[in-house]
Nucleic acid binder design. Structure first.
Lengths: 189, 189
DNA sequence: CAACAAAACTAACGTTTGTTAGTTTACTAT
DNA sequence: ATAGTAAACTAACAAACGTTAGTTTTGTTG
C-alpha cells in the first residue's frame, strides 16, 4: 500500500503535534521529518491550521459515525455502552497519535473549525449521556450521578491513548474486555 | 489578604496557559492582563519557563506531600484510596487552573525541571499502584487488572478540573462522596 | 518526444517572540 | 529628609515563525 505524501504529512504532523504540541511544532519541523522543505507542504495543505483541523475533524467524524452505528444496533443500553467502549479502544489503537490531540490540542483550532469540532463533541457526549440515563431508567444501571459517571468514563477513554502507548503489545481484544469490566463493573445494577 | 504581584502573575499565567496553552501565551499577554509591561515580569521571574515550572512543581509537591500523609495515616488500603480521592478533589477545587496544566502543558517543561516533575509524578503513581495491589492482596478489592484500574482512576481524577469548571457550584463535600462512589464502587470486593 | 501538471525548490517578507540593558518611579527604613 | 531597594518603564535585538512568489525538477499522458 502506497501512502500519499499528503497522508504521510498528516501522520507525521500528528506525531509531532502530540509530542511537542501544535504551537511548538513548526512547519519546518514537519518538513524536516518528511525530508522536504517547509514551503513544499503548501502544495498539499493550505495552512498549518488545515493540517490540525483535518486531523481533529476526521477523528470527530469517526466517533460521530460510530455513535450512529451503536444507536441503530438495537442493543440495550448496557450493550450500547459496551459497543462504545470497543469503539474507543479500536480508534485509539488505529489512530493513536491523532486521538491524542483530542485531549488538549483542539484548543488551537480556529473558526470555523472550532465551532464544528465542539458541536460534534457536544453531540457525542449528549448521546452518551442519554444512553446512561436510559440504562438507569430501565433498571440496568444502579443509581448514580449521571454526569459524574459520564465524565468519569469519558476521561478514562480519552486518556487511553497514553496507556496504550506504553503497552503497545497488549492484545486489542483483551484491552476491550478489561476496559468494559473496569468501566461498567462499577455502574451496573 | 494582600496577594503579592508575584502570586498575581502566577495565577494569571496559570489561567492563560490553561486557556490558550503555554506556547501560545506570550509574556506580553500575561503582562497586559496584569496591566504592566512584559519586561516588568522579569523583576519577579527570571524566565517564562520559570513561571510554568514553579506552577507545575508546586502542584507536584502538594500531591507528593498528600501521598505521604495518606500513607502514614494508618488507614487500610480502601481508606487510603478514599483519602487520595479527597486529596484530588480538594486540590482541584483550590488550584483549578494550575492543576489543569498537569493534563497537557507539562510537556513544555525544560530540563532540569522536566526530570524533577516526571520523577515526582512517577513516584506518585507507583505508590498509588502499591495501595491498589495491597487492597487486592488483603481481599478488600476484587480481582482486576491493576494497571488498567490505576490508569482509569487517575484519568478521571486528572480530568476532574474540567468537569468542576463547568459545575463550580457543586458542593465540595458532595463531589468527594460522588467521586468515591463512582471510582471505588466498581473495584471494591 | 512534447506538453502539462504535480510537487519539489530558493529566497524573502513581515510579525511576533523571549529576553536584555539602561532608566525612572514608588515605597520603605533610617 | 535621605538613602536605598523594589518594581515599574522605554527601547531594542536577534531568532524563529507562517506564509508567499517565483522557479526548477519530476513524473505522467497524449
Amino acid at each position: 500500500m502506497v501512502r500519499s505524501r499528503k497522508e504521510s504529512i498528516s501522520a507525521c504532523a500528528a506525531r509531532l503535534f502530540r509530542k511537542r504540541g501544535y504551537q511548538a511544532t513548526s512547519m519546518r519541523d514537519i518538513a524536516e521529518a518528511e525530508s522536504i522543505k517547509a514551503a513544499s507542504i503548501y502544495n498539499h495543505f493550505k495552512s498549518k491550521q488545515e493540517i490540525l483541523s483535518s486531523l481533529l475533524l476526521r477523528m470527530a467524524r469517526l466517533f460521530t459515525q460510530g455513535m450512529q452505528t451503536v444507536k441503530t444496533s438495537g442493543a440495550d443500553p448496557v450493550g450500547q455502552l459496551e459497543q462504545l467502549i470497543r469503539l474507543h479502544v479500536r480508534l485509539t489503537i488505529e489512530h493513536t497519535d491523532a486521538i491524542a490531540l483530542i485531549a488538549g490540542e483542539w484548543i488551537h483550532l480556529e473558526e470555523p473549525h472550532l465551532q464544528e469540532y465542539r458541536r460534534m463533541r457536544d453531540s457525542y457526549e449528549a448521546e452518551f449521556k442519554e444512553i446512561l440515563n436510559e440504562g438507569k431508567q430501565q433498571g440496568l444501571l444502579r443509581d448514580l450521578a449521571t454526569d459524574i459517571a459520564l465524565f468519569s468514563m469519558l476521561s478514562s477513554l480519552r486518556w487511553l491513548y497514553s496507556w496504550y502507548s506504553r503497552n503497545r503489545d497488549y492484545p486489542a481484544e483483551k484491552l476491550e474486555e478489561e476496559m468494559i469490566a473496569t468501566l461498567l463493573g462499577g455502574i451496573k445494577a
